[in-house]
Design a protein around this nucleic acid. Sequence first.
DNA 1: GGTACACAGCTGGTATATCAGAACTAGGAT
DNA 2: ATCCTAGTTCTGATATACCAGCTGTGTACC
Lengths: 240, 240
Amino acid sequence: MSIPLKRQDPRTPSSYHLAVTVTALDLDSSAASLADKAYLAIRDQLIMLDIRPGDPIDDDERAKALGVGRTPVREALKRLEGDRLVVSYPRRGTFATGMDISDLAHISEIRVQLEPLAARRAAERAVRAAQVELEELAARIQEFDVSRLDRTELMRWDLAVHRAIYRAAGNPHLEDVLIRYDNLATRIFCLFLDRLPTVDEHVGEHVELLRAIAAGDADRADDLAREHVLGFDRAIRAVI
Amino acid sequence: MSIPLKRQDPRTPSSYHLAVTVTALDLDSSAASLADKAYLAIRDQLIMLDIRPGDPIDDDERAKALGVGRTPVREALKRLEGDRLVVSYPRRGTFATGMDISDLAHISEIRVQLEPLAARRAAERAVRAAQVELEELAARIQEFDVSRLDRTELMRWDLAVHRAIYRAAGNPHLEDVLIRYDNLATRIFCLFLDRLPTVDEHVGEHVELLRAIAAGDADRADDLAREHVLGFDRAIRAVI
DNA sequence: GGTACACAGCTGGTATATCAGAACTAGGAT
DNA sequence: ATCCTAGTTCTGATATACCAGCTGTGTACC
């Protein structure tokens, strides 16, 4: 066996983790591979309910719509299957996963453990640069007129807030799993968005949470994050 | 757009989730696709350190070794990348991920939250059939002479125990994430296995934990699971 | 009206061509 | 003589085309 290259060369990291981690805000990041782009595009369509639960996903059609071949689309769908955003029935097709009340319970059960942990760690470990970033985010969100934003824009900001916190927690594995379930939770959020009366309240919680983290108040960040998850769960449950 | 098939037909589930969930014990499950088989085979080689951290993984060579084409191997590697078991540097190759002390800390931080939760839920929710299954598992393990088993066999049983608990918890998402980090933790375990003095103690904890769950003692299961994770973390740290 | 057979669509797998980046080598300049 | 730079070559990644097997559906015949 010949080893053609030096063993571990940490120069250029894979774009994969970048693509998973990257916030939904920058779909136009041109550095990504076609598979990454397809993944992000379809993932967003899934989360924002451009593709609704149960909808069939035709890879050929998606490929044409995105202007790429079937391979990157297939790869994207495989990854989305790992994210539990699509389900594929062999020789039948792949479909956007269905959603039911038990899914919300299962996801909340995980998030209620890990979101407070991330918030706590972010408050403890966040360095100066991250603190000002979180502060700025809080300031921008506070200025929003929630009623004027469309649902997609609102969701993107929601996602961005959570991503920033996960990142600041300094645990890449924790970041992974939280992103995964935040996507699923956001999808449920979108499902019930028009029936939810208290969206602005949800956004207000973000501001408090971000401020607590930036201030380094770990206990308060922990509490707020837990309440944020539980409040989300209750809010959805109330309108079912 | 024509929809050729009925929308949601829950008859035949994808083999994907099966393959992820399936215990490492049955590699010979013939129902799986080539990609699933490649995934399980390579994953096991990664966990059991047949492929050591930092080793390059040549997809062509793996394909030949497994007697399949490159596509299923590439798909398997993509999935393993999602599991953080391999890292791919674009245009350079893919490698088994490196391991360092901070990884252990990060993984333990997650597991210490979720393993007790799973144990608790398993104790609360486990139905009759699952209870006897867990009891049987406990009985079989108790009979083992740890010193006589080789490392691979031991690890497979370790994995089997945890999988059984995760399954019994009745939360598929929780099962997902715990399997993922149990794999990573087991890989670390294997790395230090020959330096660890207290392997039999670790196995003994399994018996207690399984019995507590089967008995429906949620509080005790919670405690034992937490101690199990923390004990693991301490044991590794002691021999670094 | 029911059953069986044939056809079509889709997934999964493979092979192949193209593209891009990295390393190695050679040549020139200092 | 040594170092830097440019070009060539090699390898891995990506995309597309092709093939095979299976499933579901529709139609035709009994």
